[in-house]
Design a protein around this nucleic acid. Structure first.
Length: 479
DNA sequence: AAAAAAG
């Protein structure tokens, strides 16, 4: 199976090839022909499965016929967060390189002027978060009567965020003879109802949850007390030789405080959460993608869908309350065939949350103890997929420091070095008496076989194969 | 419980 088998145009195939992809993922293979035939579609799939390209590619072909008109966008894609909307826009630009298509990105937190001007000139595709779309609609800047293709992405997340009334409102403004695509990771009742009401005899496709089955991610849990979290994190960051890591916390205040402390300790870290203005959100993300900072402290705004190449580690500074968020968070690493390591801090009150995570993933997460930090790294539990007797986790899988990467590597090492000395002195073995014992390390077992995804090895972002100066973090594709 | 989204 190749992209050429899916009925895509030659221009599009060229763009796909330029991007370095040859083989469609399962969802692409199923969805693209259906969308191409202008049929409705319900796809149960998450980001990381190649979902975005499964609608962006055929949409480009569909939109290549016809003309745009002022204030009457020809298609609309709804996204739950601003960053996801930006990412879809980048995909459109990448794959639409050989087409004359205009898009407008309608998200909050930025000036409306450019968005209004783009609408006035006419666009083929509108990529929007609901709030700003509604705002502009109410100001009379958009007519949706010419919009014949609607994509509702991450529908279940939209539901969580209370966007369903807005989506219903928008659906009613679109012509009834239109094509509607609905993507959702799960299918709770209200989403089924939404689909019944606004889709016409849709094809239903479902692909496996990716992160639960992603054997590229080595997972650990770490027993901590609330007041030792910072020390444990600092120690782990140094011992793990973290190249690029995202640290998730449950609260925005925690994100802020933690980033401040990491910076004070000399780490090259940044932060992203919803209380920051959009310019700062974008700036921090850009710094991270460019490798100017190698740690990003984040709220769940960054948990889903964000595709940042080369993230070697994910730390859950807090166990997420909702098990789905665990899957999303750790899915920021181990992407595109690379390996990744995910550590989840479990304090006493997180017992139930982590149990729910293990139930959901069907995986007993091995315990990683830091009683003797120096030793523990060497005797950490094995890869979840391997028998428990294996001595070393797959550290060899991770990139070796090569001369080529020193430019950035050195920058990063210098700063934490001070912290390292301090850490050696102060953090030393933490007698675990008051630390809650996490459940005993059990033989980890995988419950379902991991379906292999097909990723091109072409872009120079796979750790271990890269010898040049700084790995590019700019690739955004969710193919 | 928190976070996300309009200003």
């Amino acid at each position: 199976m190749t992209f050429a088998d899916l009925g895509l145009s030659d221009e599009l195939l060229r763009a796909v090839e330029t991007a370095g992809y040859t083989e469609p993922t399962p969802i692409q293979a199923q969805a693209i022909p259906q969308v191409h035939m202008m049929k409705d579609l319900i796809a149960v799939a998450q980001t990381g499965t190649g979902k975005t390209a499964s609608f962006v590619l055929p949409m480009i072909d569909i939109l290549s016929h016809g003309r745009r008109r002022a204030r009457m966008p020809r298609s609309l894609i709804l996204e739950p967060t601003r960053e996801l909307a930006m990412q879809v826009a980048e995909n459109f630009e990448k794959y639409g390189a050989n087409h004359d298509l205009k898009l407008a990105l309608l998200i909050g937190g930025v000036q409306m002027g450019d968005q209004v001007r783009a609408l006035d000139e006419g666009v083929d595709v509108l990529i929007a978060t609901p709030g700003r779309l509604m705002d502009l609609f109410e100001r009379g800047k958009i007519l949706l009567t010419g919009c014949e293709l609607l994509v509702i992405d991450e529908a279940d997340r939209m539901l969580d965020m209370g966007f369903i009334p807005d989506i219903e409102f928008i659906c009613e403004k679109l012509p009834t003879t239109r094509q509607t695509l609905l993507f959702s990771a799960t299918m709770p009742g209200p989403i089924k109802k939404l689909a019944d009401r606004f889709l016409t005899s849709p094809k239903y496709i479902e692909v496996a949850r990716p992160a639960t089955a992603n054997i590229n991610i080595t997972q650990f849990k770490v027993a901590v007390t609330a007041r030792k979290k910072q020390d444990v994190l600092r120690s782990l960051l140094l011992k793990e030789d973290v190249q690029t890591g995202i640290i998730f916390a449950n609260r925005k205040t925690t994100v802020r405080d933690l980033n401040k402390n990491l910076r004070r300790l000399g780490f090259a870290s940044g932060e992203i959460h919803g209380d920051m203005d959009q310019a700062s959100r974008m700036a921090e993300l850009a710094l991270f993608k460019a490798g100017k900072i190698n740690l990003l402290v984040a709220s769940d705004v960054a948990a889903r869908g964000l595709d940042i190449k080369g993230v070697s580690h994910v730390f859950n500074y807090d166990t997420p309350w909702h098990p789905d968020d665990y899957i999303h968070r750790i899915g920021r690493t181990g992407r595109a065939g690379a390996t990744g390591r995910a550590f989840t801090f479990v304090a006493g009150e997180d017992a139930e949350a982590i149990a729910n995570v293990e139930k959901l993933t069907g995986l007993k997460i091995p315990v990683f103890t830091l009683d003797d930090a120096a030793e523990q790294v060497e005797t950490a539990p094995a890869l979840p997929a391997a028998p428990a007797e294996v001595e070393k986790p797959a550290r060899e899988d991770r990139p070796r420091r090569s001369e080529g990467r020193t430019r950035r590597g050195e920058q990063r090492r210098d700063q934490p070095r001070k912290a390292e000395a301090a850490a050696e002195e102060r953090i030393r073995p933490e007698p675990p008496q008051e630390a809650p014992r996490a459940p005993a390390p059990e033989r980890s077992q995988r419950v379902e076989p991991a379906p292999r995804r097909h990723y091109p090895a072409d872009p120079p972002s796979l750790p271990g194969e890269w010898n040049g100066p700084v790995p590019g973090f700019l690739g955004i594709s969710a193919l």
